[in-house]
Nucleic acid binder design. Structure first.
Lengths: 346, 346
DNA sequence: TATAAGTGCGTAACCGATTGCGCAGCTGTG
DNA sequence: CACAGCTGCGCAATCGGTTACGCACTTATA
């Protein structure tokens, strides 16, 4: 005590004022900032004993390096951007939520945080903000549209990004389920079961996922020497009214099976059938894609392809970190559907 | 051209390498960094002509100040944290989504961005990360629990924060709808309509909002010289099974009206009644809180109190910015319910 | 035992902004 | 004409880290 207190008592007072910094540590331990920095990062040469003293100090006083200062020094933000549509349909929210848990987990593991930006059909200013202001080191785009202003924007900017979903051109790094293959396979399976008049009801045809599924459907038909029939394919069903009309159309066109493109459509199809007293699976069979929890065991027997948004988020974030680290990545990654048929007993 | 090209052609090459900085501007304009900074921020004295030159340059080369450097200089991150449960129920997602749009909008208006952190019942490490690493200047907590580890944590830390929702102690800055008053009023209205055996079906009793509504219900009964009756109050209904039992209990206890605490409960109550062929509103009346879009015009006539999560988000973010700016704020803000009864024709 | 190789650590520049202080030069007042 | 006050602007320190370079000292090698 007496040996070290040569008139520097002031230090103690000053230190309380704000957060503890790397200079504080250096002063208290009578070593240089450089050594402290090296002890922490593990880069450079530091004596074992010194390193231990530093680490012990850090532990004791719960020191955390200031991310701004660190970022400024090596030109990183330690943030990645997570971009989702601000006006997305309620039934899409579980998808984004579960993607996001995956992205968050991977980010946290890399000591990164998530900067959120909500984009709208005609307003991607929040995305522009975080990119142009350099608040992120990379971007994960939560979904893709056929004509996607976000993708167009990101392609022009000099920033690593990956998209969850596919793009028409396929010239960006993309993570997706292979909707085309899955829907094609589903179609084949249904045909093999003896069904001959397959119908398709889908949503927004500006969403790539819907286009992919439709293409898969057509492919599946082709593989069995069939083709889409008049009155059996309905896209852009925005609400239960549209879906209702589509179902009526299907019945008129004598569909024996309806493939629903997503949870919402499926729920609304089931509702319509119930209202019209059409019985599943005797009068008609239903197949669907299952990405949420809106279907459960009270749902009548349907054939459902299930997949896992969380692993999409994980894969996307991992790929993004490879990009940020300057590594080569696969431009296109397809995650398997869990083709386990949820309720196949029709 | 000839006049200015006195051996500084190198500049042009160097500039392409990275982003343009305040020093680049200073060099090119033959003024000091200080002046540039002042011209941008508007603080300090700068000649009108100089300011214009700087602004023109910025416009032309699309200069954006580096937020890390700026943050380091005045100890701000220009981020606020948005904390939501990572395991929230699907039916809660629209609420958070809409809150978030409000928070985002206000943040963007203040030149701030949103850092996301997902917390779980037993794991608030993502929140701890962003606070302890000082990645945010303040926090908006998306909902409150009766025993809330996030609130406890934030109270200990030296960081501005506001919660959306109430707390048992009320000793933090909170923005909420006045669920107690609203539910009390709703109860009184129903009683005035002649209903005498009011039932309440609710969810998780660790959620403050549910506790508040329950308290409001009891208050409303008291105000009419009534009290909660045996077999008419059900809490902690996690799923349609629980809700089903609750509805059966209500019918056995001869309820003439059921108040549903939230959208999900309401939907499951309606489903159960439909399955059991109990007709609304003749055999029983239904009232509910409406914060989502799961109810629509195909829903039978019910009395619903509506409110707007988006304005909660806006109010919360505004309050947070006041806190960050060191201003005084109201500790407790109640936003009005839109007591407009959605479908009151029972 | 002289020399090369390796270790531990510090000096100082740097990342890109902000800001206190002070210095000229101009304007206005008596 | 002298002096106060204001205006426009620059110097240099600062925020809290990282890192190239170099120096002194220890250890291995011939």
């Amino acid at each position: 005590m007496s040996k070290q207190s040569n008139g520097r008592d002031l230090d103690l007072i000053v230190k309380d004022a704000g957060h503890i910094t790397i200079s504080d540590i250096a002063n208290d331990l009578n070593i240089s900032k450089t050594t402290v920095s090296r002890a922490i990062s593990g880069k450079g040469r530091v004596g074992a004993k010194t390193r231990e003293r530093v680490l012990a100090y850090i532990e004791k006083y719960n020191y955390r390096p200031n991310p701004l200062a660190r970022g400024l020094a090596n030109l990183k933000t330690y943030n990645i951007g997570w971009v989702v549509p601000g006006d997305s349909d309620v039934t899409d929210l579980p998808f984004f939520q579960r993607c996001m848990t995956g992205v968050c987990e991977v980010a946290a593991g890399n000591d990164y945080d998530i900067l959120l930006s909500m984009v709208y059909e005609k307003d991607i200013s929040q995305l522009e903000r975080i990119v142009q202001n350099r608040k992120v080191d990379g971007i994960v785009l939560g979904r893709t549209l056929v004509e996607d202003p976000c993708v167009d924007f990101l392609k022009e900017m000099d920033i690593p990004f990956v998209v969850i979903g596919s793009t028409p051109t396929g010239d960006v790094v993309q993570i997706d389920n292979d909707h085309v293959a899955a829907c094609s396979e589903l179609t084949s399976i249904l045909i093999m079961k003896g069904l001959r008049r397959l119908a398709l009801i889908g949503g927004d045809s500006n969403h790539m996922v819907n286009i992919s599924r439709k293409n898969g459907f057509i492919e599946g038909l082709k593989a069995n020497q069939m083709k889409p029939e008049e009155g059996l394919v309905y896209m852009d069903c925005k609400d239960r009214k549209d879906v209702g009309y589509a179902v009526e159309g299907c019945m008129r066109a004598k569909a024996d099976c309806v493939i629903c493109m997503d949870d919402r459509i499926c729920r609304e199809v089931l509702e319509k059938l119930k209202n019209d007293n059409i019985v599943i699976p005797t009068q008609i069979k239903i197949a669907s894609f299952y990405d949420s929890v809106l279907l459960d065991n009270s749902t009548p027997a349907i054939t459902a392809l299930q997949y896992d948004p969380r692993s999409l988020g994980i894969a996307a974030a991992r790929t993004l970190f490879h990009l940020i680290d300057g590594e080569e990545v696969e431009p296109i990654t397809y995650l398997n559907y869990e083709v386990a048929l949820k309720v196949s007993t029709q």
